[in-house]
């Protein structure tokens, strides 16, 4: 006689925490580099005041919320209305792959790892920003896997901004 048991799946805490940490760093990095990098500034200039963007792991999070306020980008905890642009990872494994970063955004999108809700043009702008942010954060050998072409940034500038971010920027957020 077979016994029928219901199965209540648990949570993957380790990966959830890793994703959360990476999201916090990414959010900080976006906030910092959006004030230091002209190309990112220019992409953001086209976003309306009060624009919100989220990175979210379905179904329970973690989640990263980014807001444009006073002409600047900053990360926020919660907002009332629905974000205008959502990048939803279909599950925590997919999010882990892309955030850690073992897989780039184009590859991830090709493999249906996440879906985008909202204005596609802004999503394209966001991926261009992300490319630059990742180029500041990670060395070339990592970047090569993550993007189709590493943005051309002056070597000295890239190094000094990276140093700045990991020492001062990550703390002060500006």
């Amino acid at each position: 006689m077979s016994s029928i048991k219901s199965y209540k799946p648990g949570r993957k805490w380790f990966k959830t925490i890793v994703c959360k940490v990476v999201m916090v760093i990414l959010g900080r990095a976006f906030q910092v580099f959006s004030r230091h990098d002209h190309e990112i500034k220019n992409e953001i200039a086209a976003w309306p005041e009060g624009f919100t963007l989220e990175l979210n792991v379905l179904p329970f999070g973690p989640r990263l919320l980014i807001l444009k306020e006073d002409g600047k980008i900053r990360t926020v905890g919660e907002i009332d209305e629905k974000p205008e642009l959502s990048v939803n990872f279909k599950n925590i494994e997919s999010a882990f792959l892309i955030l850690t970063p073992l897989m780039g955004v184009p590859r991830g999108f090709a493999e249906h790892r996440f879906i985008v809700i909202g204005d596609v043009a802004k999503a394209m702008a966001f991926t261009r920003c992300l490319n630059r942010i990742l180029a500041y954060l990670y060395p070339d050998f990592l970047c090569r896997n993550l993007m189709r072409r590493i943005p051309e940034i002056n070597f000295m500038k890239r190094m000094s901004k990276r140093l700045y971010f990991y020492t001062i920027g990550i703390v002060t957020g500006s």
Partner: peptide, 13 residues
């Protein structure tokens, strides 16, 4: 064009 979603799947940036 650079804001068109189709570019996401283009092999070259």
């Amino acid at each position: 064009a650079i804001n068109d979603g189709a570019l996401m799947m283009n092999p070259e940036e």
